[in-house]
Amino acid sequence: MPRKSLPPTVRQRRLGAELRRLRESAELSATQAGALHGTSQPRVSSIESGSYAVSADRVRAMARSYTCTDEALIEALAEMTGGRTRGWWDEYRDLLPSDTLDLAELEHHAIAMRTASVIHLPGLLQTRAHAHAVISDVVPALAPPDVEHRVSYRIKRQAVLYGESPTPLTAIVHEAALRMGFGGPEVARAQLEHLLDVSEREHITILVIPFGAGTFPSSGQSVYYMAGTIPALDTVQLDTDHGAGFLDNQPQLVKYRTVLDRMESCSLTAAESQDLIRQVAEDIRER
């Protein structure tokens, strides 16, 4: 039996969407674009939906035929060509939702990451025990094997923070996330000690918004911003109860860059944040 074709990843869909935006800016229909490139309207539509792999040379030719003069953008799009990236996350292909796997692929290609959360600590900074406590409590409840799959996947994602060329991460967390106590005192204390350990790494910055900071933007949701090779190809991921949502149009990217900038302005410095994390860990010890 032939293998069922896989749906395009968010990265493949993003390449197609950017080519569609260039075509529409040139005021060309898909049929007209196909005639320019010596192909058909259905083929152009397949490329723009991310379901048909396209070569780097074809992307360059398409972009220039759409009168795009932004060479940085053209080359960044050319780097996104080919089939789906094959990575360690493929071993979870039949175990986890596709949008969950898309996140690992985006992290793999990101040149920098910024995340902000209020109640939960960022997945890239969670210990295994903390992740297990959080994932075990989702609704609807997961079977034990499914919990283990999700926990192991979350921990493997953290590889982008280590190795020879780790990806820089700035994590903005609210003091509430430090004090939630997921998994009980021992797990919570170990999690805070882990935050202190990783915050000593040059490429990881943890900034805490204290209770006294008052109001701040996006206080009701987590925001995860992954930088592409150029700002136009950045991606925002928002967590919802229904799964991950990905945003990539320019007004949305500008909005969330501004949101994260404002959240950073409400945060303590990195050194002050470390002091507060230590204090919360001490408070747990004294309970």
Rank of each mutant, 00 (worst) to 15 (best):
D90P: 00
P97E: 04
A143L: 13
W89M: 03
R128L: 14
E105H: 03
A131G: 12
H149S: 11
M113C: 07
I155G: 00
V147D: 04
R114S: 08
A129G: 09
P144D: 05
R154I: 01
E71K: 04
W88Q: 04
A133Y: 11
M80G: 02
P97A: 09
L103W: 07
P140W: 10
I119K: 08
D94A: 13
P122M: 01
S136E: 06
A143Q: 13
G123P: 03
A133L: 08
R154E: 03
R93T: 13
R150D: 03
E148A: 12
A104H: 00
P122C: 03
V151I: 08
G123I: 06
L106A: 00
P122G: 06
Y153T: 02
R154V: 02
P140S: 07
E79C: 11
A131T: 12
L103D: 00
I135N: 08
R114H: 08
L142Q: 04
L77N: 04
H130C: 15
E148I: 03
R157Q: 07
W88A: 07
R154F: 01
A72E: 15
A78Y: 02
R93Y: 05
A116Y: 13
L125Y: 01
L106E: 02
R93D: 13
W89P: 00
V118A: 07
T67C: 12
T81Y: 05
H108A: 14
M80F: 03
A110L: 03
T127H: 05
D90H: 10
V138F: 08
A116N: 04
D137A: 15
Q126V: 11
E75V: 05
A129N: 12
R157N: 00
A72L: 10
Y92C: 07
L95Y: 05
T100Q: 14
L125N: 00
M80L: 14
A129W: 03
A104G: 01
A76V: 05
P144C: 04
E91Q: 13
A110M: 03
E91N: 06
E71I: 03
Y92E: 10
K156M: 09
G123Q: 07
D137K: 10
D94F: 05
D90M: 09
A131K: 09
D146M: 09
L121G: 06
T69W: 01
E71S: 11
H132W: 12
G83D: 09
R150G: 11
E148D: 14
E91V: 11
P144H: 03
A143I: 03
E105D: 09
H120E: 13
T67M: 12
L96C: 04
T69Y: 00
L101G: 06
A131Q: 14
R86Y: 08
A143G: 08
R128H: 15
R128F: 13
A72W: 02
V134T: 13
I119R: 09
A112W: 10
A104T: 01
P97S: 05
I74F: 06
R93E: 12
